[in-house]
Design a protein around this nucleic acid. Structure first.
Length: 243
DNA sequence: CGATTTTGACCTGCGC
DNA sequence: GCGCAGGTCAAAATCG
């Protein structure tokens, strides 16, 4: 079975994926019957109170991930539990814990951007070239985590890939750092069909710049690049184009 | 033969 | 200080 077939299988159920950017979780869940003219957007999902922004939660939490709370019919499903794990920091800063915490000066954590996709292939094609440099077993998970570095010289972006232990069909991808170069795929001739690259102040700096068509920094609603989705999910790009 | 992957060893940070 | 877990290194193996 080809990768394209795998993506097709995912899209038959509608597009479902979630992601985190700098400790804030986002989710996207497109119903199968969505109106083709609808804008495809990600929406802010800030927990309240919001431990996601607790600066003391900075260096040793498990990989950031979230699973859409609305994916399952049962609100008490394990997927909803996974969101709780992603939205709260482990042990020392649970939501509702108002005790002052010992805050250490820590090396600034590399910005992260994590998202979840439903796919049978682990390493989703994102236009960049990656070299695997490690693989580790993950506690409480039967699936290992793979570590990748961008192969471009002077680019220190890393990517972590693992499968969700709650749902083995979900792939958790975490980007660390920001590319200092264009996507090789873009340079190879896709520029003609892609919008101009976003500027370096791109708010979700760990993500390939061609993922999104626009960013609203004060109201974080993202519009995904239709051509990118078409490429990733083997969909008809005309279905995804804005009216 | 160069690039990439595999995999065990090693390093680091954190909690107890 | 010790043990655990996450992350990285680097030599060997594999691939194209």
């Amino acid at each position: 079975m080809s990768d394209a077939d795998n993506y097709k299988m995912g899209s038959q159920e509608g597009l479902q994926f979630s992601f985190l950017a700098d400790h804030t979780s986002f989710m996207y869940n497109q119903p199968k019957q969505q109106n083709p003219s609808d804008t495809m957007s990600f929406f802010y999902n800030t927990p309240s109170p919001s431990p996601a922004f607790d600066p003391s939660c900075s260096s040793s939490e498990p990989p950031l991930f979230a699973v859409n709370k609305n994916l399952g019919e049962n609100p008490n499903s394990s997927e909803a539990a996974a969101v709780e794990e992603a939205d709260s920091c482990p042990k020392h800063c649970k939501a509702g814990d108002l005790k002052p915490k010992k805050v250490k000066e820590k090396k600034a954590r590399e910005a992260r951007f994590a998202f979840v996709t439903k796919s049978e292939v682990d390493n989703l094609e994102d236009g960049y070239r990656w070299r695997k440099y490690g693989q580790k077993a993950v506690k409480n998970s039967p699936f290992p985590r793979s570590y990748y570095k961008c192969t471009s010289q002077k680019c220190s972006v890393k990517k972590l890939i693992e499968r969700s232990y709650e749902d083995s069909t979900m792939v958790i991808t975490t980007y660390l750092g920001r590319h200092n170069h264009h996507s090789p795929a873009t340079l190879r001739g896709r520029a003609a069909v892609l919008p101009p690259p976003l500027q370096p102040q791109f708010g979700f700096h760990n993500f390939p710049e061609n993922y999104f068509t626009s960013i609203h920094p004060n109201f974080p609603q993202l519009e995904i690049n239709p051509q990118f989705l078409a490429d990733q999910f083997n969909m008809d790009s005309s279905f995804l184009q804005h009216p």
